[in-house]
Amino acid sequence: MADATPAVEICGLVKDFKTSFRREMLRAVAGVSIRIEAGEVYGLIGPNGSGKSTTMKALLGLVAPTAGHCAIFGQDSLVVDSRRDVGFLPENPYFYKHLSGAETLRFYGKLCGMRGRVLEQRVSELLALVDLESARDRRLGGYSKGMLQRIGLAQALVQDPRLLILDEPTAGVDPIGSRQIRDLIFKLRERGITVFLCSHLLEQVQEVCDRVGIIFQGKMVKEGRLEDLIAIEDQTEIILRDASPELIARITALVASTPGTELVRSGKPRTTLERLFLRETLRDEP
């Protein structure tokens, strides 16, 4: 991976939208710069309406920047060829209902110039990857939200791109579905694919991202490596199994007798509702 050109380069991106009153402009993105190296997983988080989708659309050339510029692997986003090496899953994707899963992938593959046996092989491969082989010949009109999201992911991957852009990949998907998507992103990262994703749900992003940017009202508020951002530097956590009350008392006493150290909290760790849900629903599975 001696590739020096970054997968994504967004420099001082500004995007204004016309509102219904002609003169008044709405600044959706106000000077965002992002650089993503090849092979990284980058998460952009921020509340609704903070400009995440607009940033991604500018990167894909779907909207033209008011100021600044975007490039994918060194190619300007306004050039059609910059889209050769990128796959995109839009927010709440909604594909052609009249096509089946396999037909959908075939259509997008052909748009990328794929044909014949190579394409057929790729379609089967992708359906297996996103676990939709059983729904291969069913029309998308009958797909669930999670299935649509997964066929969307497969569609984005059809030409084997080096960069994947995912807009809210887990929004509206149940915990099992969103874990499947998360696992898929892990798998892709192992294969060296660069992933640029955004979400307003912090939990889901945490586990997959190498680097995270926090965007608010069109501005980048904080950016850095995930561990650096979420670690509470001056605290340490010890989790014990089957600890007797006496042991706890001894530890508490030891901490109290050490100057400069303070016991912040002790008690039983709570499982998250999500983990509980997964444990209960997946108990019967091998």
Partner: peptide
């Protein structure tokens, strides 16, 4: 399912005519 940066699948992204035809057939089917 390995990554192959210069696989025939994407060394070219097809001709204009090819793409227009793909979209046309898709619209027709729709």
């Amino acid at each position: 399912m390995s990554q192959h940066p210069d696989s025939p699948a994407r060394s070219n992204s097809g001709s204009h005519c090819g793409r227009v035809w793909v979209i046309a057939m898709h619209a027709f089917t729709q």
